[in-house]
Design a protein around this nucleic acid. Structure first.
Lengths: 168, 168
DNA sequence: TATTGTTATACTCTATAACTATA
DNA sequence: TATAGTTATAGAGTATAACAATA
């Protein structure tokens, strides 16, 4: 189904490879960086890193409490990273960790009143960023882009080993 | 033009904010991670980090030599990061640094013969990854996605301060 | 004085493994 | 034995500032 090599372009040094500008990972990185540039000052005002905000946002979206593992998955953070972030957020009084009743291995997370207040305080600014992006880029276009990104992420999950074989 | 807050959803705790799943930065992050997951083993086989590969790839795409600043911009790396990466790549004999003749402040970069050979060696595997993505996701769809990502990154460059004002 | 690039430093995240405590 | 989380550790990148050399 896939020809071994079908380069779109031969580059300056006679190497058969796609143009650097068509690199998907870099395009995703740049788009992400451009988007984050607008969110970052918002978070910096409250001494939040991007990842800390992800955690707060995930908990805000949760009705009640969520286990650490769940939050790790939703925020796309590794457990060790999340653990350290939780220490920080707990010390700052934004998040609460409580051992689950029925299963003492599990730790449930929830926003404190302060944590919820902080999210509520930041939310309008975040919404404003989206409004701006929608205004310049197009609301429908943004929705479509989000769908495509989700699909790309999902599709890429299956058949993870074809590459390695063809590459060796 | 933009209503202060027009939440699409009120979340579990009564906070007016977009659903976590519709977060653009996270969607971009996950898509990127999914794509990189396929490239990473390829690079790991040759002890290359993603960023080191970006530099090699940028130089491969260059006809002749490129200044450090140029490469920093194209690879989306900060100068200090790039400097350290260059030390590494130079020690491994993959990249060459030479002071520019007319301007002794400038340092020109180029692939060594070995560096070019390495890129040439990895290229087919990289191309295979793209073939796979195109096969599952659609070639035309991928092209369109790349265009949209470029547009998003570009659009977001202008009018950088609206946010900060509305956020405070 | 401005520019190009490097070095210094502090911080954060990623990633893997080892460990603790439950179950 | 397996699972949920945490801790330890190594490594790398980001970001800012300070610096050296050159223009």
């Amino acid at each position: 189904m896939a020809d071994p090599v079908r380069p779109e372009v031969i580059d300056g040094q006679g190497i058969a490879i796609r143009p650097f500008e068509q690199s998907l990972p870099i395009a995703l990185l740049k788009a992400r960086e451009a988007a984050m540039r607008r969110f970052r000052p918002l978070l910096a005002d409250h001494d939040l890193t991007e990842q800390q905000w992800r955690v707060l946002r995930a908990l805000a979206a949760t009705d009640g409490a969520a286990a650490v593992g769940e939050v790790a998955e939703r925020t796309f953070l590794l457990a060790p990273s999340l653990s350290r972030i939780l220490v920080n957020l707990e010390q700052r009084g934004l998040v609460e960790r409580t051992t689950a009743e029925h299963d003492h291995r599990r730790v449930d997370l929830s926003l404190t009143t302060e944590g919820a207040a902080l999210v509520r305080h930041i939310a309008p600014g975040s919404e404003a960023v989206y409004q701006h992006i929608e205004a310049s880029f197009g609301a429908e276009r943004l929705r479509r882009l989000l769908r495509e990104l989700h699909d790309l992420a999902a599709i890429d999950l299956d058949a993870g080993d074809t590459t390695a074989e063809e590459a060796s």
